[in-house]
Nucleic acid binder design. Structure first.
Lengths: 333, 333
DNA sequence: TTGAAAGCGCTACCAT
DNA sequence: ATGGTAGCGCTTTCAA
């Protein structure tokens, strides 16, 4: 059996109150007794039971993190940020993966509440009324992270997506490209894709003589990028730069071009969005928009902890800066 | 305030024992009362406090997972397996990242015990006497996952590393390669690298006229692969296939070859080890040894849960099958 | 400075 | 079938 506070008290010849005081440093204890107690604790290998502690203090030092899939590198980065900053404040992370299933999302929110987490970070990739409702009725701090949809209803951390594509498009234009294709992956309402598309449109509009070339991808996977690239190359338009709304799409594009002996960036430039790990591992390294996933996670949990401590919080939506990562996949024409 | 079992009991006009019985289905309750209680629970939005429950039952349904870095895709895969299977048995995952620091490893083991986890999965990438000792004195089930070092002292899940490189080398030989370079990343004792190196040596030995070509890499990162490739190309040996002990090294090799206009697999074949996600995302897709990380995680937690349930467990070391993933980076000579 | 005791929310045993 | 109650390991009053 593992030793309890009682065992320590008995062995040290003091009351459990005193033991509690020395382990928590909550009230003065004479140095001899403190010494003695510390000794016994060491001898017995006593470790306070945090469960019991939580029951009385109501502080679990637990934060629930619900993700879609850790296999997505951007999610892993998010969680890294969450966990590392959490630990700085003595918070631990309870991890749940939904694999995109909404019912599971709901189930985990319940589960985590029962486990007495003090806050929840929900990373989702869909927008759903049912969940919406649930979240609003939620009594504990929650930050909602969604890379694909936006809503003003919850606390969230994001980047200025419209500005990002706007800047990237401008960058391509300044590189001399006049026929820039943009590849969105969806046109749904509240979709971040829409914002991103508008950034591209805005940039194109501002330059005389340029016109939009939009090629929708089926989804946002590598295969979808591969397919759309085929379409672009067969469109007859003389595209010199392909700007994809997701790095994965851009990788698919790169692959298609490789398979068809089209050189990047000599023959055509390719840009992505996200800066996933893979984007800079291979040749040619991908020019892309760096979303600061680690930081987003870090800020999200800081926000939660602030709410837990009932400190004043700023606006619901926190906007973080992004970066245009200029690498070899884009060049002057 | 959130409702407690007392509130439910009062509102339903029954004792808390009865409420406990209906939420746990532990003892017969007349269907009218059950109905009534269920109703009240619903009305009040009552959710059992798992902390209180844990305190009395001694079952936290928590498993601690200590990883080096979630940013490594193989670790993320491991954790996916752990988490998904854990959930099947109602276990939740408490996640801690050490970023390779041994002191932190130790600290988290303590912390997790205090949080009353029922078992720990420790993913490490170093071998350390201090930790060794700690683990041995540990009273709760623990599985030790280490991709780089082996030891017979703890429960672990792995693949037959020697057999893996042996098979891959044979595959390359059968492809017609006679000058196969092998790139280990270390030669430390107890290092898995040693096992892998021996698999390569064994295969080479078995063929008349073949000889070993070993080029040590500094570490196991992409840059290290890049450097070692330079060395290989400048060695004057007519190497036709490079077999790296880690996918990351192989990616570095691929990059060097790309930068120097050497075609893969036309001019030279490249093989890796691990099958990390990136290995199959880009062109040319990497021929490599697939370590079943998800499965390793899954088996590891199953093992832990078995121990928790005090079911009989097999041998300490569980060996899982691997696969040679044949892709475009290796071709007949 | 120290100890006794109540109580956190729940389960499980003992009565009835 | 139901209720009463001890007790899980701890913190936190309140008294001494």
């Amino acid at each position: 059996m593992t030793a309890t506070i009682k065992d320590v008290a008995k062995a040290a010849g003091v009351s459990i109150s005193t033991v509690s005081r020395v382990i928590n440093n909550s009230k003065p204890v004479s140095s001899e007794i403190r010494q003695k107690v510390l000794e016994v604790i060491n001898e017995l290998g006593y470790k306070p039971n945090e469960i019991a502690r939580t029951l009385v203090t109501k502080k679990s030092y637990l934060i629930g993190v619900i993700v879609t899939d850790l296999g997505d590198t951007y999610i892993a980065q998010l969680v890294r940020g969450i966990e590392e900053v959490g630990k700085m404040y003595d918070y631990d992370i309870l991890l749940c993966s939904t694999y995109g299933d909404k019912a599971t999302e709901l189930k985990f929110m319940q589960l985590l509440t029962r486990k007495q987490v003090e806050g929840i970070i929900l990373i989702s990739d869909s927008l759903d009324d049912e969940i919406d409702k649930q979240i609003k009725e939620f009594e504990i701090p929650l930050v909602y992270l969604n890379r694909y949809f936006y809503t003003d209803d919850f606390s969230t951390v994001t980047i200025d997506n419209l500005e990002a594509t706007y800047e990237m498009t401008n960058y391509l234009i300044k590189l001399g490209h006049e026929n820039i294709a943009y590849v969105p992956s969806s046109s749904e309402k509240y979709s971040v894709e829409l914002l991103k598309l508008n950034g591209y449109k805005k940039a194109i509009e501002e330059y005389e003589g340029l016109e939009e070339n939009i090629f929708y991808a089926r989804g946002r996977g590598i295969d979808d990028g591969y397919e759309v690239c085929k379409e672009i190359m067969e469109s007859g338009k003389d595209i010199t730069a392909i700007f994809c709304s997701h790095d994965e799409l851009a990788i698919g594009v790169l692959n298609y071009l490789y398979d068809n002996d089209i050189k990047v960036p000599e023959d055509i430039s390719v840009a992505g969005y996200g800066d996933i790990k893979t984007a800079s591992m291979f040749r040619p390294r991908l020019t892309t928009i760096r979303e600061p996933f680690y930081d987003i996670g870090a800020v999200a949990i800081r926000r939660i902890i602030k709410e837990i401590k009932k400190e004043a919080v700023e606006s619901k939506t926190i906007v973080l800066p992004f970066q245009i990562q200029k690498r070899e996949s884009c060049a002057k024409i």
